[in-house]
């Protein structure tokens, strides 16, 4: 009788501790986000983020963002770059991933290994070279150059992940289609492609998010203010310690984070299967 009671007690304590951990962690996660979100609706010019819920609330900051700053232009720039990056990169890695998964050709293994090694080289390794190339091609401050870099940079790793996902689609499907007389393109487009749609969605999201999240390359290659992407532009709001536009920064941050987070949660369930499949199946 006593034993059962102590067992019950330890169980109760462990349940209690579990909830304490979960709630504490939730607070730690939510607190800084809430600070940023609430700052976006504060009146006047605040110098630093703090969480206070009794302010005068206003939507004026969003209006100021588009009227007083170049935020609208930055957002448009980023969207253009992101959409191009997404379409081209996903097309290329889908084709390449499919090929590596389905065809056995000379040089297949060695080029896959090459992808794996190239993927480990940090982007920074090419930074100065990018700069000189941009000078030579007159491409400083040009979107096409930055877009090409975003596309190319993600290819090796994402081809790997894509191939891994294609590998999870049983090869019998191809073979029965081949027996039915379907050609290369039909098998790919009508039979296999629909089955890897979740992974394509995930890859599209990542390719799309890349230009929104990149600060380093954009800062390095885009030199005039009206060419900035949002990451570089937003940073100018808070980089000047004396004149921080915290409320504008927060408002701008929300307009980026909200759509991206929504897309993220929408596709979230595919992340695990995609990554684990892509990362482990050879």
């Amino acid at each position: 009788m006593n034993k059962i009671k102590t067992q019950k007690n330890t169980r109760r304590i462990s349940h209690f501790l579990t909830y304490v951990y979960m709630i504490l962690l939730s607070i730690i996660v939510v607190y800084p986000i809430l600070i940023t979100v609430s700052s976006a609706f504060k009146k006047g010019n605040v110098t630093a983020f703090t969480l206070s819920l009794h302010n005068d609330w206003t939507f004026l900051n969003f209006q100021r963002l588009f009227q007083e700053t170049l935020y609208g232009t930055w957002y448009k720039n980023t969207l253009i770059i992101a959409i191009f990056t997404m379409i081209v990169q996903v097309t290329i890695i889908t084709l390449a991933g499919y090929t590596y998964s389905r065809y056995r050709f000379a040089g297949r293994k060695s080029s896959l290994k090459l992808f794996l090694i190239v993927q480990m080289v940090p982007t920074m390794a090419a930074l100065t070279a990018f700069y000189v190339m941009a000078l030579l091609l007159n491409a400083l401050d040009q979107f096409w150059f930055l877009t090409l870099i975003y596309i190319g940079g993600g290819i090796p790793m994402n081809t790997w992940l894509m191939k891994g996902y294609f590998d999870t689609v049983p090869i019998d499907l191809d073979e029965s289609a081949k027996l039915d007389g379907a050609g290369h393109f039909r098998i790919f487009a009508q039979i296999i492609l629909p089955l890897v749609r979740p992974m394509i969605a995930v890859q599209s999201l990542w390719a799309f998010m890349g230009p929104f999240g990149d600060y380093m390359l954009a800062k390095f290659l885009l030199r005039s203010e009206e060419k900035y992407t949002v990451a570089v532009g937003l940073q100018t709001f808070i980089s000047d310690e004396q004149n921080q536009k915290v409320v504008l920064f927060s408002a701008g941050a929300i307009l980026i984070a909200l759509p991206i987070s929504i897309l993220f949660f929408f596709l979230q369930k595919h992340f695990v299967s995609g990554l684990i499949a892509g990362g482990t199946k050879g």
Binding site: L25, S26, V29, V30, P32, I33, I35, T36, F49, M209, F212, G213, Y215, A231, L234, Q235, I238, F249, S250, A253, I256, A257, I260, S261, F264, F265, Q268
Partner: peptide, 15 residues
């Protein structure tokens, strides 16, 4: 628990 991943990192770091 997913929020820190969903929000672009540069925003949270600047915040």
């Amino acid at each position: 628990f997913l929020l820190p991943w969903a929000v672009p990192a540069f925003i949270t770091i600047m915040s």
